[in-house]
Design a protein around this nucleic acid. Structure first.
Length: 276
DNA sequence: AGCAACGCCTGATAGC
DNA sequence: TGCTATCAGGCGTTGC
């Protein structure tokens, strides 16, 4: 599933390839994936606009268009955003196609959870979902001391807190499990119960695991592909996610899988003890 | 207000 | 073999 490293990879890929191209025509194959405006209005508004650049906020992809509009995309679980200049039939589950003056950008999503919307540039920061997003964990605004203070104030379990996009934005199930393992913290521990040293270790683990995820061009467990349709490589170095029963690479004890905050959660009972 | 549970959706897999 | 039930999970919504 696309989390921060996957979305960052897509944005970098497509930013380099799409900037300067023009949207000639939008083809909406599954109307409900266009959240706003109405699909006909969407197609009418986007036609004839140039792509000025791409950026990312949390797991949202922002495509800045000429004359003051922005295309916002969220891939959710199984969405793919792929640019191709090769003439080929669209893959199954392709729901939205932007025909550019050179090549096509297609949005494909098996589960149909992903959404696209077109909004005026000045309203982007007010869009529900984007508006509430918390700190970017790879940005300068993610400050260790602030993070430690915020953890100390929360009675929630650490894993659901890390997944809360209004707290930190960009972590999903994979990188959260990996960060907690690297920090040696049990996912069900209360945030406020972590001591300063543990919180500091977790801060570094989050930055480290996300930066490595970007360096490896994302994790392709199932559906994720980059902006050119290629798989990432981070799945080759996962330590706990999807590794139930596999020996922990640090201590050799089998990885366990539990449910935490309603999510499948992987951890090492030896490296991440609940009791300290 | 803060937090938990649910619904959305299809394909893979487990169980009978 | 073939059917049904369950699971995967990001996020908006609903409800406690």
């Amino acid at each position: 599933m696309p989390e921060l490293p996957e979305v960052e990879t897509i944005v970098r890929d497509l930013g380099a390839r799409l900037t300067g191209l023009m949207v000639e025509r939008a083809e909406v194959l599954l109307p409900k994936v266009v959240a706003a405006p109405a699909p006909e209005e969407f197609a009418r508004l986007i036609a004839g606009r140039k792509i000025l650049g791409l950026s990312r906020r949390g797991k949202y992809i922002l495509i800045e268009l000429s004359r003051g509009w922005v295309l916002i995309l969220h891939l959710r679980m199984t969405g793919q955003l792929v640019y191709t200049t090769v003439l080929e039939p669209f893959p199954k589950h392709t729901h939205l196609v932007l025909h550019l003056d050179q090549g096509v950008l297609r949005f494909t999503d098996l589960r149909q959870f992903g959404r696209a919307s077109l909004v005026p540039a000045r309203e982007v920061r007010r869009v529900p979902g984007l508006r509430e997003l918390g700190v970017e964990p790879l940005g300068a605004e993610f400050v260790k001391e602030d993070f430690i203070r915020k953890l100390a104030r929360s009675r929630r379990m650490i894993k659901p807190l890390l997944l809360d996009q209004t707290f930190l934005t960009g972590l999903g199930n994979i990188y959260t499990d990996e960060a907690l393992h690297r920090a040696g913290i049990h996912p069900e521990r209360r945030a406020a119960d972590l001591d300063t040293r543990e919180a500091g270790t977790l801060y570094r683990a989050i930055r480290e695991v996300l930066a490595e995820g970007v360096a490896f061009r994302g994790t392709s467990v199932q559906h994720y592909v980059d902006g050119s349709g290629q798989r990432g490589r981070f799945q080759e170095i996962l330590r706990v996610y999807g590794k139930k029963g596999v020996p922990c690479p640090v201590c050799g004890v089998p990885i366990e899988r539990i449910r935490c905050g309603g999510r499948g959660t992987h951890y090492c009972p030896e490296c991440q003890p609940f009791e300290r």
